[in-house]
């Protein structure tokens, strides 16, 4: 770029040499950024969650799906199958007998998948953490993205958990790396 002409619409030469000859009539962006934005926009507004209630937190989960909480205004619809759902809300006390099933259901979900641990019991065992039959936290068997504290959490708390998941999805750069905010991709799909 000619240094004597100052054109703020042109990306800096170091940003991407491919667009060095553009003369400012068009705002350019990288195609993979656009696709990332589009994918994240679609994904974050269609987080389908699996119907999976374990204890009293499931009642609050139903309330959140009801007309006052209204989960679906964020595009989050309940699904009866792990294969078609993106979000796994562990709502309630998790026993060891159920923990093996949770692990299996999680394995059946397809990527990208997200997990909300809802309530004290699934966060750490909660009230029942000294019981012989209760798993001390769902994060001991599957990775958890968002912990929602409370016993049980109010619907507003679960809604905020969903918004946190949306934030996380919107910050993803799926074409480079799934968890990659600030991570240098090893392989870029678009070269």
């Amino acid at each position: 770029m000619d240094g004597s002409k100052l054109n703020l619409m042109v990306p800096s030469a170091g940003y991407d040499a491919r667009y060095a000859d553009d003369q400012g009539s068009v705002i350019t962006t990288r195609v993979d950024q656009t696709i990332n934005w589009l994918l994240n926009w679609g994904r974050s507004n269609s987080i389908w969650y699996m119907l999976f209630g374990l204890a009293c937190c499931a009642i609050e989960l139903m309330q959140t799906g009801g007309p006052r909480g209204d989960f679906e205004r964020f595009g989050s619809a309940p699904r009866p199958s792990p294969r078609s759902s993106d979000l796994f809300i562990i709502a309630g006390t998790l026993t060891y007998k159920m923990a093996l099933r949770v692990r299996r259901l999680f394995d059946q979900m397809s990527e990208p998948r997200y997990v909300i641990s809802m309530g004290s019991c699934s966060n750490c065992g909660g009230l029942f953490q000294y019981a012989y039959s209760v798993c001390k936290g769902v994060d001991q068997i599957i990775p958890v993205d968002v912990y929602v504290p409370g016993c049980p959490p109010r619907p507003e708390a679960l809604l905020e958990g969903l918004l946190k998941i949306q934030e996380q999805i919107k910050s993803e750069r799926y074409l480079q790396y799934r968890y990659g905010v600030g991570v240098t991709p090893e392989v870029s799909l678009l070269g």
Binding site: L100, G125, S133
Partner: peptide
Amino acid sequence: LLPDDWEGHPLRKDYVEADEYHGIPTTR
């Protein structure tokens, strides 16, 4: 109530909880 492969009978007073169940630690 308990899984079929559970060891021991937990309501006995001398029951000791195992360290793990199928690789899941029982303490936090």
